[in-house]
Amino acid sequence: MNRLTTCAAAAAVALGSLSIAAPTHAAPAKAQTYTVTAKANLSEAVAKEDVVKVRGRVTPKAAGEKVVLQQRVGNKKKWTVTGNAKVKRNGTYLLTDKPSTPGPREYRVLKPGSRGIAKGFSKPVEVQVYRWEKLVSRTAGPRVNLDSTGVLIGAEYFGQSLATSVAGTPSSVEYTLGRKCTEMRATYALTDSSATGSSGAINVTGDGKVLASHALSVGTVVADEVLDLTDVFRLKLDLTTSETPAAVAAVATPEVLCTR
């Protein structure tokens, strides 16, 4: 009986040893992913004038490998590739873009996967892009005694301008900007067709607030004046001219800096 008990105990110990010695399987290691940071030099840019510079760092460094600049404009969901560059020895990079169209946009940077490391994206960087456009190309609201035409001022031609059509009659035009424009630039003067001794005046208002006011006479030119249109919803231009001697007042080649 004791012998049987002894044999059973020995078998139990052997089974226990086998159980303890059974190999265990560790969970697979998580794949490494590139970490990418990005920062733009501008939060607002002018189309066809400013260069947006996107800088950042890739971790691990991936020196000599490629990073890709992507962007999307407005409400578009698709990202478009617009440039690439090589990662420097210290893991940093520089990407550039010169936007040609207005509107809000986002930039992000992709580091493609390599050397067993998965691809990584930076967080999106937002940039608002504006563009200079001819004011007379925009849809006008109420317009009185004012023509869209070319004018001569000091023997210099200004295309796409606004000029009074009947001397001595008040003239005006309104444009809805919708708070999407930040600046306006224009030249104000009497045209070369105005009689000697004639006079006039120009007033520019934004939502009823006076932005500029100038008295005009032959030979007086207010050249390339820039006005702040920040948060202006409705822009209005009022011009007056003398009837005798007859004058023609002009807002020469007005442009507004707007986004979509």
Rank of each mutant, 00 (worst) to 15 (best):
G150I: 00
Y157V: 14
K134D: 10
R115A: 15
R138I: 11
D97W: 04
L95K: 01
F158D: 01
T164R: 02
Y130T: 03
L146W: 03
I153M: 07
E174R: 14
R89A: 15
K111E: 04
P99D: 08
V127I: 13
K98Y: 01
I117F: 04
K180W: 01
K123N: 13
E183K: 15
V125K: 11
V125W: 05
G141E: 02
P99S: 05
G83I: 09
P124E: 10
L135F: 08
T80L: 13
I153W: 02
V127C: 05
V129R: 01
R89E: 14
F121V: 07
F121K: 09
Y175S: 05
K180C: 01
A163I: 05
K98S: 13
V127G: 03
K123V: 11
G141A: 03
L95P: 04
G168Y: 05
K119Y: 02
R108Y: 03
I117M: 08
P99G: 05
E183I: 00
R108A: 11
G113K: 05
E133D: 01
G168T: 09
E126A: 15
G113T: 11
P124T: 11
T139A: 15
L94W: 00
G178D: 04
R89K: 15
Q160L: 12
P142Y: 07
P112I: 08
R131L: 15
M184S: 03
G120S: 06
Y130K: 07
V127E: 08
K180G: 09
R105P: 01
S100Q: 13
G83L: 07
S148Q: 08
Y107N: 04
